[in-house]
Lab assay of single mutants.
Amino acid sequence: MMITLRKLPLAVAVAAGVMSAQAMAVDFHGYARSGIGWTGSGGEQQCFQTTGAQSKYRLGNECETYAELKLGQEVWKEGDKSFYFDTNVAYSVAQQNDWEATDPAFREANVQGKNLIEWLPGSTIWAGKRFYQRHDVHMIDFYYWDISGPGAGLENIDVGFGKLSLAATRSSEAGGSSSFASNNIYDYTNETANDVFDVRLAQMEINPGGTLELGVDYGRANLRDNYRLVDGASKDGWLFTAEHTQSVLKGFNKFVVQYATDSMTSQGKGLSQGSGVAFDNEKFAYNINNNGHMLRILDHGAISMGDNWDMMYVGMYQDINWDNDNGTKWWTVGIRPMYKWTPIMSTVMEIGYDNVESQRTGDKNNQYKITLAQQWQAGDSIWSRPAIRVFATYAKWDEKWGYDYTGNADNNANFGKAVPADFNGGSFGRGDSDEWTFGAQMEIWW
C-alpha cells in the first residue's frame, strides 16, 4: 500500500505532463481588424464602393470589426500518417458601440487525414466545412476562386508533373424550389442545395520560377423529389480557371483567366447560384435568372523594390453578360506602395480606380480612391502583421446608374434591375460627389 501511495504523485505528475503537452499542441490562428473612423462631412466613417463592383480598395476603407478565430489540433499521428481537426468561428459588427450583439458564423469544422492511402503518398483526405484552397486579391479583399463550404475531397495527389485535387462542396439558396400545392400555385419556401464539383491540377512547373494551375468547377441545383425551380432559374454552370504564378522581385505575380457559364457567373468564384427565389410569386422572380457567361482577366501581385520599397498591385477586367441584360462590365486598377522608414514603421499609400458599365443601360459608374496611412507593423514586409495605422482617405465618384429596389417585386416591374440614375424622376446610384474620411485601425493575422 505504501508503495502504491508513493507512486501516486509520480503517476499524477506524468498524467499532468501528458495533458499539458496535449494542451500546448493546440494551434491558434486567425485574422482580425477593428478601429475607429470619422467622415469629413460629419458622423462615423463611411466606406466607398462603386455600385456594381464586387469589391473595394480596402486600405483606410473598412468600416467594421471583423474576426476569424481558428482552433486546430493534430489529434493523432503514427509515422507519417496523421489526423488534424480544424475549426473557425467568424463574426462581424459595425464597430459603433462597446456591446454589439452578433450571431457568430461557424465557418470551418473539418478533419484532414494525411498519408492515409498507401499508394497515394503525400495526399490528404478531408471532410467537413472548410476554407478550400481559396485564391484572392488581398488589397481589394476579392476572392476570385473560392468554393468554401461543407464538403469532402482528396487533395495533393502527386501525379509527377503536378498535384491533383478533387472536391465537392455545397452552397444552399433560400426559397430555391417549390412543391405543387393546388390550382397551379407554387410556394417557393424550400431551400435548394447547390452542389459544386471541383478538379484542380496545381504546382506544374512550366518555366523557371513559374507554376501553372488549372481548374474546372461544375455547379448544379440539386432538387428534392417532386420539387421544381422557378421558370428561367439557372440550373447549372461551369467555371474554368487558369492561373500562372511567377516568382519575381522577392515576391510574386499571378496572371489569371477565368470563364464561367450560367449558374457560375453571378459570384464568379466557383459557387453555383441562380435557383434562389426571393418572392413566393414566380411571376416576379426574374431577378434570379443569371443565365449567360462571364470572362475575367486578372493580374495581381506583391513585389519588393529595394530595401525600403514594397508594393502590391492589381489590374482586372470582368465581363458578365446575362441573357436578362442585367450584367456588368467591370474593370479596376490599383497600387499600394509602402516605404519603410524603419523595420517596424512605414508609410503606405493606396490608389485605386473602378469603372462599372451596366449591360442594360450602357451607362458607367466610376470612382477614384486614395489613402495615405502611417503604419507600425511587426516586420519590414508589406505582409507583416499585426499593424496599427492612422489613415486619411479621399474618394470621388460619378455614378450614372443604379439598381432599382424601390417598393417590392409585386408593385415594381423593374425591381432588382439596373436603371439610369434619374429613372422615373428618382435617384439611383450615388450620383456625382466626393468625400474624405480619417481614422485609426489595427489588422492582424497569425
Results as ranks from 00 to 15, higher is better:
Met2Lys: 14
Met2Ile: 09
Arg6Ser: 08
Arg6Leu: 12
Arg6Cys: 06
Pro9Leu: 12
Ala11Thr: 01
Ala13Val: 04
Val14Ile: 02
Val14Leu: 07
Ala15Pro: 13
Val18Leu: 05
Ala21Pro: 02
Ala23Val: 02
Val26Phe: 07
Asp27Tyr: 06
Ala32Val: 02
Arg33Ser: 10
Thr39Ser: 03
Thr39Pro: 09
Gly43Asp: 00
Gly43Ala: 00
Glu44Gly: 09
Gln45Lys: 14
Cys47Tyr: 03
Phe48Ile: 14
Gln49Leu: 12
Ser55Thr: 15
Glu62Lys: 09
Cys63Arg: 13
Glu64Gly: 14
Glu64Asp: 13
Thr65Ile: 15
Tyr66His: 09
Gln73Leu: 08
Glu74Lys: 05
Glu74Asp: 11
Gly79Cys: 11
Asp80Tyr: 05
Ser82Arg: 08
Phe83Leu: 03
Tyr84Phe: 15
Phe85Leu: 07
Phe85Ser: 05
Val89Leu: 08
Tyr91His: 14
Ser92Tyr: 11
Val93Phe: 13
Gln95Leu: 05
Asp98Tyr: 07
Asp98Val: 04
Trp99Arg: 04
Ala101Ser: 12
Asp103Asn: 13
Arg107Ser: 12
Arg107Leu: 15
Asn115Thr: 13
Ile117Phe: 08
Ile117Leu: 13
Arg130His: 02
Met139Ile: 12
Ser148Phe: 12
Pro150Thr: 13
Ala152Thr: 12
Glu155Lys: 15
Ile157Phe: 15
Asp158Glu: 15
Val159Leu: 14
Val159Ala: 15
Gly160Val: 14
Lys163Asn: 15
Leu164Ile: 15
Ala167Ser: 14
Ser172Tyr: 06
Ala174Ser: 13
Ser177Thr: 11
Ser178Cys: 14
Phe180Ile: 09
Ala181Ser: 13
Ala181Gly: 14
Ser182Thr: 14
Asn184Ile: 05
Tyr186His: 03
Tyr188Phe: 14
Thr189Ala: 05
Asn190His: 07
Asn190Lys: 01
Glu191Gly: 08
Asn194Ser: 05
Val196Leu: 05
Phe197Ile: 11
Asp198Asn: 02
Ala202Glu: 13
Pro208Ser: 02
Pro208Ala: 04
Glu213Gly: 01
Glu213Ala: 10
Leu214Val: 08
Leu214Gln: 01
Gly215Cys: 06
Arg220Pro: 03
Arg228His: 04
Arg228Leu: 08
Val230Gly: 05
Asp236Tyr: 08
Asp236Glu: 09
Gly237Ser: 00
Leu239Phe: 08
Phe240Cys: 12
Thr241Asn: 11
Glu243Lys: 04
Gln246Arg: 00
Ser247Ile: 03
Val248Gly: 13
Lys250Glu: 11
Phe252Val: 09
Val256Asp: 00
Val257Ala: 01
Asp262Tyr: 03
Ser263Ala: 12
Met264Ile: 03
Lys269Ile: 04
Gly270Glu: 03
Gly276Val: 08
Gly276Asp: 03
Val277Gly: 14
Val277Ala: 13
Ala278Pro: 01
Phe279Leu: 05
Asn291Thr: 14
Gly292Asp: 00
Met294Ile: 06
Leu295Met: 06
Arg296His: 00
His300Tyr: 03
His300Arg: 02
Gly301Asp: 00
Ile303Leu: 08
Met305Thr: 00
Gly306Arg: 02
Asp310Tyr: 02
Asp310Asn: 01
Met311Thr: 00
Met311Val: 07
Gly315Ser: 00
Met316Leu: 01
Gln318Glu: 01
Ile320Ser: 12
Trp322Arg: 08
Asp323Asn: 01
Asp325Val: 09
Asn326Asp: 09
Lys329Glu: 01
Thr332Ile: 00
Ile335Phe: 04
Met338Arg: 12
Met338Ile: 06
Thr347Ser: 07
Val348Gly: 11
Met349Ile: 08
Asn355Ile: 11
Asn355Tyr: 13
Glu357Asp: 10
Arg360His: 01
Thr361Pro: 12
Gly362Cys: 05
Asn365Ser: 04
Asn365Thr: 13
Gln367Arg: 14
Trp376Cys: 10
Gln377Lys: 13
Ala378Thr: 04
Gly379Val: 12
Asp380Asn: 08
Ser381Asn: 02
Ile382Phe: 08
Arg385Ser: 14
Pro386Leu: 00
Val390Leu: 08
Phe391Leu: 06
Phe391Cys: 00
Asp398His: 10
Trp401Cys: 05
Gly402Val: 06
Gly402Asp: 00
Asp404Val: 04
Asp404Glu: 06
Thr406Ala: 07
Thr406Ser: 12
Gly407Cys: 06
Asp410Ala: 14
Asn411Ile: 09
Asn412Asp: 02
Asn412Thr: 08
Asn412His: 07
Ala413Ser: 10
Gly416Val: 13
Gly416Asp: 04
Ala418Ser: 14
Ala421Asp: 12
Ser427Ile: 15
Phe428Leu: 07
Gly429Ser: 09
Phe438Ile: 13
Gln441His: 14
Met442Ile: 11
Glu443Asp: 06
Trp446Cys: 15
